[in-house]
């Protein structure tokens, strides 16, 4: 198929960017979106130009590195997929595709389509862990039974890949879905209880410090989330946060 691509180009965080138009032919439905981008870059390099920078690594939807805003949607038109899992069969011959980076002030553009998601790392550093040393000298793994439903729910929350699609999608650039997924994972497990209040307080504090917006319950984040992280996590986080604010640590 033949495509017209409008790709965001931006030299660095402080530069002004713009959409650049490229024509691309020979694209097949079996290609992933990123393979299509490889073909574009191959063409640009052979013409002596500067290829488009985009983040990507595992190309199987789990590392969370790829991050493209395609035709106004995080990770493009598919549901439950990352950009690397989106295949060109989702597009038609003659389509014009607009490709932009995640847009949020807490995610400054590094170059072109790549953004800096260091804020997510800093939120985890603020408390997204259980404080246990790695000696291996802990309880036997089966010492505390965990009801299957809780374990499954914790797992579902823990499958967040930290890609940032929720932030990119949200009109307020809120990171509540991301933060609440981590808060929920530990809130649902016995191992997470001792630090439960402190964790939610500190992670929310850091989230605010990073400049993410607030949640207005539109639910767009959960719709675009490639891993189907549920909105109930946000409710759980809000409840825990309120509880911690009122009852203290």
């Amino acid at each position: 198929m033949n495509l017209t691509l409008k790709v965001w180009r931006q030299e660095g965080p402080k530069d002004k960017g713009n959409l650049q138009t490229h024509k691309l032919s020979g694209v097949t439905g079996d290609m992933s979106f990123l393979e299509m981008m490889d073909v574009l870059n191959d063409q640009i390099i052979r013409e002596g130009g500067d290829p488009v920078v985009f983040d990507h690594d595992c190309r199987e939807g789990i590392c969370g590195m790829c991050s493209m805003f395609i035709n106004g949607e995080a990770h493009g038109p598919g549901r439950g997929v990352t950009t690397c899992q989106l295949h060109m069969r989702s597009f038609k011959d003659g389509d014009t595709i607009t490709i932009e980076p995640w847009r949020a002030s807490a995610f400054p553009v590094v170059k072109d389509l790549a953004v800096d998601r260091g804020a997510f790392d800093r939120i985890i550093q603020a408390g997204g862990y259980v404080s246990v040393n790695t000696s291996g000298e802990t309880l036997d793994a089966n010492a505390i039974p965990v009801p299957k439903a809780d374990a499954d729910e914790a797992f579902n929350a823990a499958t967040c890949i930290g890609c940032g699609a929720c932030v990119a999608t949200c009109k307020n650039a809120s990171a509540m879905l991301f933060v609440s997924a981590k808060v929920s994972q530990f809130a649902l497990l016995p191992q997470g209880q001792p630090e439960r209040k402190r964790r939610v307080t500190r992670m929310v504090e850091q989230m605010d410090k990073e400049g993410f917006g607030n949640c207005t319950n539109t639910g767009a984040c959960a719709v675009e989330c490639p891993k189907g992280i549920d909105l109930t996590n946000i409710a759980r986080m809000n409840r825990d946060f309120l509880n911690a604010s009122v009852t203290g640590e």
């Binding site: 291996g136 036997d140 793994a141 089966n142 299957k148 374990a151 499954d152 914790a154 823990a158 191992q191």
Partner: peptide, 20 residues
């Protein structure tokens, strides 16, 4: 020890209905 360690860290391994 790896399994003990990971469970202590809150890694959500698959469980049976008995919670183990």
């Amino acid at each position: 020890s790896i399994i003990d360690q990971c469970v202590a860290q809150g890694v959500p391994f698959a469980r049976e209905y008995g919670g183990l």
